[in-house]
Amino acid sequence: MSTATLVHVVVSGLATGSIYALMALALVIIYNATRTLNFAQGDMLMVSTFAGWAAHRAWELPLIVTMLVAVAAAALLALVIERVIIRRSIAATHWDVLIITVGLSLMLRSAAGLVWTHEDQAFPSFFGDRPITLGPVKLAPVSLGIIGGSLALMLCLYGLFTHTRVGRAMRAVAQNQRGARLMGISVERVYSLSWVLAAAVGAIAGVLVAPVTFLSTKMGIVVINGFTAAVIGGFGSMPGAVAGGMLLGVIENLAPLYLPSGIRYSVPFLILVAILLVRPAGLFGRIEQRKV
């Protein structure tokens, strides 16, 4: 395989990996605040991207407004789900919420199919498909755009968590809930906020990736890759989620290049199982002490 090909495939993998990273971040944001896993994260991404698309089709909105519509739809959906369903089970164990979100995932996918049918839809892109040529290397603007857009969003998140009151409150809750409450932070508000924030991140990821993979009710399955990415990085670690996502995207893309077709698609899952077995804390995480 020539170097030029390898570069192209790796860049393409980084683009896919950026989406996994954003999905992983969304999962980690909710996990850090509430210690629960939102299995419906991928389907929330799907529904909000569909909402943006529907608005785009109805009113011929510019793409940036479409993205804002998707983010708004995601925020609203997350708020309603958190307030109406998740809040009721606040005292529940982690797997109660996992099961509830599995139920939500089924419902969202089914409802989206009823409203928008199960067919693939073309989605407009910020970026072109014609390759940019750099010497022997050919790069697709859409791949670079996804990577750039995702990195920008990650920087925004970094700023939010380190330089704003809200962000600091969220980190405080992540570290020590009781302590945060004693400090006068409304833990419930942080719960809602983390759901909204995670959904918004998902919506942006959805708008970025939909032009490449097309918009369909099937795209919610990305949550599994997001989870794998988060585990590779160390579940709970935000830099880990980003690194894990990128790594997963690249490995997933390189596998078909070097491995026979029999094994290549099991690679992400084998990595997941291997990481869980060899180093459950992931690349960046710490093992949490279990408390009584």
């Binding site: 020539s2 993998g13 683009a15 989406i19 693939d120 490449v212 596998a255 290049l257």
Partner: peptide
């Protein structure tokens, strides 16, 4: 989600004709 490696390998094989036996989504990809 991505078929870049597969297409790159087919290009390296210098195929004159590539049969696309996929469903519409991946086919278009």
């Amino acid at each position: 989600t991505d078929v870049s490696a597969q297409i790159a390998k087919l290009q390296a094989a210098k195929a004159e004709v590539t049969f696309v036996v996929l469903t519409p989504g991946p086919g278009a990809q």
